[in-house]
Structure formats: structure tokens, C-alpha cells
């Protein structure tokens, strides 16, 4: 039997205030329920980040936590090594912003250098984007192309030439009001929605699993998920 798939939650204490650790729970169960072992490590600042995992997850957090996370991750270097050898990364909201070239924090909109793993730049938006968001996943169709979530961010994220949008906005704000949401470069995905996003969008969860592991995954039926997706899509379309 092969070694378990290793998923690392990067700094839950700093980038975990919006329930995004649910993305790890979903990846673990979607493997286990198909008979594949999975280990989830909650890596914290001050301890070397495991650099042998297949998938890394970052979530949302406050300004001060973003600055602390960047400082720790740059000093550690493990995430950069993992991306270099093709590990998958899903970075949500504040985690998405720090993956970029730079972002702004604090009352005085101080610019902070990011990790430089995605070609995006984030500045302060005039108004905060808060609410249900519905997008269409680039390159996908049918029901799985609808990506549903809840966005809550004060950033305007602009994509550079070497990043492609993850999705097109149907309802909500997304990156900066230009109709794009999220960013993709190689095996790195950045996106704004919580929900958590992999809970509400199982096709995206399986996509991240395939990106990280190369496994061939059979369809999986999770009770209640069809009802939840139908309800969320109806709610956003009615608003």
C-alpha cells in the first residue's frame, strides 16, 4: 500500500479565522471515502513547514496575521520548495493575497511584499466585498462549473501576465470588479470565497486532489451536498 496523501494546513492559528480548515477536512474525507489514506498536518509558525506534502492549504485572516505569516514562510522556505517540485496549493482570501507580489495592510495602507508565488498584486479597495459569490469556473461546464462561496475581503487583486483567472464572476465582486475571480499558475490556485470553498464545490476539491496526487478519482456521492449546492445557487440567483 502506498504512503498516505499528505495535506498541510499552513498556519491555522494565523490564517484560519473563516472556517477554511474545512477545506482540509473535505480533502481528507474525499480520499478516505474512496479508500485512500490521508494525513493532515496543521503546521504552525516556529516549526519547520513539512516540504514533502502533496497539497498545501492557506485560509483567511486579519492584516497582522498576514504580515506574520509572510515573515514566517519566507524565513522557512518550505512552501517555495514545495511549489518548485509541483505540489498543489489552494490559497483562500488573505492566503490568496499573500501568495502574490504585494498587498496592503493597516490603517495607513502600508504595502507589504508577498510570497511571489502568484503573479497578482493586491491594494485596498474603496468598499469591502461582502456576500455570497457565484462564479463560472474557466474551462469547465455543466453543474460542476458553478463555483459558490462567501466572499469577505477589502482587497482589489489585479492579475499579472503569468496568472490566469480561476473563474468569471456571475454574482458578487471577485478580484477587482473586472469580472475575474481568483488566479491560477501551474499547480497554485488562489481564490477569494470561503464556505469553505471546497465544501460547496466538490469538483474543485477533486481537481485540487488530482493536481497534488495525480490520482484517478471516481465520482463520490456525499449526502446533503446536492441539496446544499442547489440551495446556495437558488439563494444567490434570487438575491
Amino acid at each position: 500500500m502506498s504512503a498516505p496523501v499528505h495535506v498541510v494546513v499552513v498556519y491555522q492559528s494565523l490564517l484560519g479565522i473563516y472556517g477554511d480548515q474545512g477545506n482540509a477536512a473535505v480533502l481528507r474525507r474525499r480520499l478516505q471515502w474512496r479508500g485512500v489514506d490521508c494525513t493532515v498536518t496543521f503546521a504552525e509558525p516556529g516549526v519547520p513547514l513539512p516540504d514533502d506534502a502533496q497539497i498545501y492549504l492557506l485560509g483567511g485572516g486579519e492584516d497582522g496575521a498576514q504580515v506574520a505569516a509572510v515573515r514566517e514562510l519566507l524565513a522557512d522556505g518550505g512552501l517555495h520548495r514545495a511549489v518548485d517540485r509541483g505540489a498543489a496549493v489552494l490559497a483562500v482570501c488573505a492566503g490568496y493575497q499573500i501568495m502574490g507580489r504585494s498587498f496592503t495592510v493597516g490603517h495607513d495602507d502600508r504595502t507589504v511584499d508577498g510570497l511571489g508565488l502568484l503573479d497578482v498584486t493586491t491594494t485596498r479597495a474603496q468598499t469591502r466585498a461582502v456576500g455570497e459569490i457565484l462564479t463560472q469556473w474557466e474551462g469547465h461546464d455543466g453543474d460542476e462549473a458553478w463555483l459558490t462561496g462567501f466572499e469577505n475581503h477589502g482587497g482589489r487583486t489585479v492579475l499579472g501576465p503569468t496568472a490566469a483567472p480561476l473563474a468569471r464572476v456571475v454574482h458578487g465582486v471577485g478580484n477587482c470588479g473586472d469580472g475575474t475571480e481568483g488566479a491560477v499558475a501551474g499547480s497554485v490556485i488562489g481564490t477569494y470565497p470561503h464556505g469553505p470553498v471546497l465544501v460547496r464545490n466538490p469538483a474543485l476539491a477533486d481537481h485540487v486532489l488530482r493536481l497534488g496526487t495525480g490520482l484517478d478519482l471516481e465520482p463520490l456521492d456525499v449526502p446533503g451536498l446536492a441539496e446544499l449546492r442547489a440551495e446556495r445557487l437558488a439563494a444567490v440567483r434570487a438575491s
Binding site: G19, A25, E132, P196
Partner: peptide
Amino acid sequence: GRDISWLWD
């Protein structure tokens, strides 16, 4: 609160 993601915490 409109966002129910906290269920996962």
C-alpha cells in the same frame, strides 16, 4: 452573521 463558514471551526 451572513457567512456560516464558522461551522468548520
